[in-house]
């Protein structure tokens, strides 16, 4: 059976329209960020700036410690990612290669936390961070996020696809768990670990809810918080500067996307949700 050409064409039109809706705002933001505000208001429909200028970026660097803010975002995302990967990898290894009492229940409880809305833990966590004197500090943002149930889940899925015999043979050779982890399991799950790591990095980079509760002064802000400053209730008078912040917020995720999207899609495809 051949797919009817008209049907195929209709679907292509639908998909192209969807892609346009999804991608257009990103391109629009880049164009706007190089337009002077007046130009942006007068030529709303021109995506490309008629008179490209760096005015918005200059204003941005003058009004906000944007380098510091970018650095904060980068540190938070990196530290959280590294910790989450290590804790998830170790936990996944325990769940796959050890038998102990209560293993199933523990796994079920940990994975169950994915379904707890953040509002349920938000007040106590705020109080804990406040007690520790970490309010308005990037450490207060990072501390509660050093382990991750989704990470345990995805890395465990990937480990389960390794033939058991490989690890058993190593055990018979009296190889210690530390070496098995490092020399056998890690190389085999590296694609999944990379994909999960990139995903953690992006999610933390873009995170909004928790930092908004913890961080108070602009010097400690992350990029999404800095961005929020440009939305005034009157409807963004600094719109083009907001676009410049948007572009800075998007650059690193976009680069990671270009490099790793195949990897991440591949990880979903091979380990999947089963």
């Amino acid at each position: 059976m051949k797919t009817n050409r008209a049907v195929a064409l209709t679907w292509h039109i639908i998909f192209m329209a969807t892609v346009l809706i999804l991608v257009f705002p990103i391109i629009y933001a880049v164009g706007m960020s190089f337009k002077p505000l007046q130009d942006a208001y007068n030529n709303v429909l021109n995506i490309l700036p008629l008179h490209p200028s760096l005015e918005n970026y200059i204003t941005l660097f003058d009004t906000l410690p944007i380098l510091q803010i970018t650095m904060n975002t980068f540190i938070i995302a990196s530290v959280v990612t590294i910790f989450k990967i290590v804790t998830s990898f170790l936990a996944a290894y325990a769940f796959v290669y050890f038998d102990f009492k209560g293993k199933e229940i523990l796994y079920f409880v940990l994975i169950g936390t994915i379904f707890i809305p953040f509002t349920v833990t938000m007040i106590p966590n705020y109080l804990i961070i406040s007690e520790m004197g970490l309010l308005d500090s990037i450490w207060g943002v990072m501390l509660p996020q050093l382990a991750d149930a989704v990470g345990i889940f995805l890395i465990r899925q990937s480990m389960k696809s390794i033939p058991v015999s490989l690890v058993e043979v190593a055990r018979l050779d009296n190889m210690g768990h530390r070496r098995i982890m490092k020399d056998i399991v890690l190389p085999l799950v590296r694609p999944a670990v990379t994909a999960v790591g990139i995903w953690f990095f992006i999610s933390t980079w873009n995170e909004f809810v928790w930092p908004v509760l913890i961080l108070k002064t602009t010097d400690n802000y992350t990029l999404p918080l800095a961005l929020q400053m440009f939305i005034s209730s009157e409807g963004g008078t600094n719109f083009t500067v907001a676009m410049a912040v948007s572009v800075i917020t998007m650059i690193i995720p976009l680069i990671l996307y270009l490099i790793f999207q195949k990897y991440i899609i591949g990880t979903f495809t091979s380990s999947g949700i089963k």
């Binding site: 969807t18 892609v19 999804l22 991608v23 705002p25 990103i26 629009y28 933001a29 992006i202 980079w205 873009n206 909004f208 990029l223 999404p224 961005l227 929020q228 440009f230 939305i231 409807g235 963004g236 907001a242 948007s246 917020t249 998007m250 995720p253 976009l254 990671l256 996307y257 999207q261 991440i264 899609i265």
Partner: peptide
């Protein structure tokens, strides 16, 4: 193309669509 916005901050999305 459809996967792309999943990488971008929803604050960016919110401001853009506003």
């Amino acid at each position: 193309a459809m996967f792309l916005p999943a990488f971008i901050s929803l604050v960016v999305g919110s401001i853009l669509f506003t």
